[in-house]
């Protein structure tokens, strides 16, 4: 019994210690961001790696999710004779929820895992130590540009996901199922509010981008510098990042739309 309590206590202490380390790490990274304004090229290079290289998966996933929404939405709405509301259904679902959430999940899997593996391997091969010994702080030179790039890329990818998704819904709803084109767009234009819907979706994706990129870069930096350690860290990035996105999505949704 005492042994079990000891293990529980040690486990809890370990979690809090790691959380504390993660927060200190974040503080140091944030302190490196102002310096990047003078060297924005470092951020642009990372924007390419995390953002541009994620375009394909985000675009394809957005298209299919939008098509599924068009099909499922039509089948449900037509039962109530409300198929002309398909545009609102597709747009609100994407802008408020699926755009930020699914793009953040895909970002965690595609770019987050790559960030963790890259930083973890740099640690395992002593590249980060070498940088420190050259009087270059790796938190400012390696981590901060990746963190900032991740934060910039996620809302842009979410916007792209939603836009392509709406086109997917349009293709199925208007192109295949015969919903009136003018109704599809005009209802969407009337009902989707820039601040309540679009901006809230943007806020969500900024928060998700912040958290997922933080988890990814911290897991890489904190990885045990062995092949197994990097592998575990990469897995943790995807698992913790995805769970954090889903958990935060509920909290943010409750805060944004809970009183409607």
């Amino acid at each position: 019994m005492i042994g079990m309590l000891q293990n529980l206590g040690a486990g809890a202490l370990g979690i809090f210690e790691r959380l504390g380390r993660g927060n200190l790490f974040l503080l140091n990274v944030l302190m490196g961001i102002p310096g990047l304004l003078l060297r924005f090229g470092l951020v642009v290079a990372q924007l390419y790696a995390t953002g541009v290289l994620s375009l394909l998966i985000i675009g394809v996933a957005g298209l299919f999710v939008g098509m599924v929404l068009g099909l499922q939405g039509y089948n449900t709405l037509v039962t109530y004779g409300a198929s002309e509301s398909l545009g609102i259904f597709v747009a609100l679902t994407l802008v408020r929820e699926l755009g930020p959430v699914v793009s953040a999940l895909l970002f965690a899997g595609r770019a987050g895992s790559a960030l963790t593996a890259e930083i973890g391997l740099m640690k395992a091969t002593e590249q980060l130590s070498a940088m420190e010994m050259m009087a270059v702080d790796p938190l400012h030179r390696v981590i901060a540009p990746r963190f900032l790039a991740g934060m910039i890329a996620t809302p842009l990818l979410a916007a792209l996901f939603s836009a392509v998704g709406v086109m997917g819904g349009y293709f199925v709803g208007v192109g295949l199922l015969g919903v009136d084109e003018g109704t599809f767009w005009s209802q969407m234009q009337d009902s989707v509010d820039l601040y309540d819907d679009v901006m809230n979706g943007v806020i969500k994706s900024v928060v998700f981008g912040f958290v997922v990129t933080w988890i990814a870069v911290f897991e890489g930096y904190d990885a045990v510098p062995t092949s197994e350690g990097v592998s575990r860290a990469t897995t943790r990035t995807v698992v913790h990042g995805s769970l954090a996105v889903l958990g935060l999505d509920f909290v943010l949704t409750a805060l944004m739309f809970g009183d409607n």
Binding site: T125, E126, M134, R141
Partner: peptide, 30 residues
Amino acid sequence: RKRMGMLFQNGALFTDINVFDNVAFPLREH
């Protein structure tokens, strides 16, 4: 540290840039 050099066991070269840029790295940084 700017006045100390260290040679790591495996070299610890930056694998994403070439030899020239590896050697130029501390000069460009400092």
